[in-house]
Simulated scan of single mutants.
Amino acid sequence: MILTGPEIDLRVKSGEIDIDPFDPALLSPNSYDFHLGDTVGWYSEQRLDCARDNAFEIHTIPPEGMVLAPERIYLAATAERIGSDHFVPIIRARSSVARLGLFVHVTADLIDIGSHNHLTMQLHAVQPVRVYPNLRIGQVTFWTVQGDIVLYDGKYQGAQQAMPSQIHRDFEGR
């Protein structure tokens, strides 16, 4: 089941949900709005390789904004640290952002239980779109779990900025 906005508020106050900074004004009926951080990154090369560490660069989004082009994937972190050891967060674009043709998570919207990070969003623009630091870009929902909880302790834990793919680590030691 999905938590309602008032329940998210209660669970943040009890410490079961981690949203930092937290502003109750950003609660919706069943979600919490989050912001784009102040940096965005992209891969430096055109061809990416799953078996190696790909060159990645991070840039500050200027106050006047940055135009995202359709021909690449951008990685950017949420301004807020988000996570829970009790509920499963799922991130999505705000409908106002989606209506501009900006995908906020492409396909990786499920956040593992126990993951506490400035979440990395995979941004993809259908057409050129200008984004700004601290833009209210997406929303997070929280879902109850059934069964034994095994907390995430993976390679992206504790991220404070956008994290490029670490899939190459899956090939190490083979």
Rank of each mutant, 00 (worst) to 15 (best):
G147D: 05
R174N: 07
D18A: 04
Q166Y: 08
V88Y: 05
F22Y: 15
N117K: 06
R136W: 05
A125E: 05
F142D: 10
F87Q: 09
G114Q: 13
V40Q: 02
P128L: 11
C50W: 03
D109M: 12
A98G: 13
A76T: 00
R94K: 15
P89S: 11
H116N: 15
D20L: 05
G158D: 12
T39E: 10
R169L: 15
F56H: 04
E80W: 03
R169I: 01
M121D: 01
Y32V: 01
E45G: 03
D85N: 15
R52G: 00
S95W: 04
A79H: 13
S84P: 07
L151F: 07
E7A: 14
A69H: 06
I58R: 09
V40H: 01
H168S: 02
N54G: 00
N30I: 00
Q46N: 14
A79I: 01
L48E: 05
E80I: 05
D49A: 07
A159S: 15
G37Y: 06
A55Y: 02
V131F: 10
G41P: 02
S31N: 06
L151S: 14
A159G: 15
N134V: 05
P29H: 11
H116F: 09
A162D: 03
Y156G: 07
L135S: 05
L110I: 15
G101H: 11
D23Y: 09
L75H: 00
I58P: 00
Q161E: 12
E16W: 02
A55L: 11
Q157S: 13
D18N: 08
A76Y: 01
N117W: 07
T120P: 04
V129R: 11
I149F: 06
G41Y: 00
Q46W: 02
I137W: 04
I17D: 03
F34M: 02
L119V: 15
D38V: 12
A79L: 14
Y32H: 04
S44T: 07
G138E: 06
A51W: 00
A76M: 02
S31K: 03
T141S: 12
D9Y: 07
A79M: 12
D9R: 10
E71G: 08
P6T: 06
T39Y: 01
L36R: 05
V88I: 12
P164Q: 08
Q122T: 04
F171T: 04
D53M: 04
G173M: 04
G83N: 09
E64Q: 15
L151W: 11
A125P: 12
G41I: 01
G173L: 03
L3M: 08
T120Y: 03
Y74L: 01
P63V: 09
V12E: 03
E57D: 14
G65C: 09
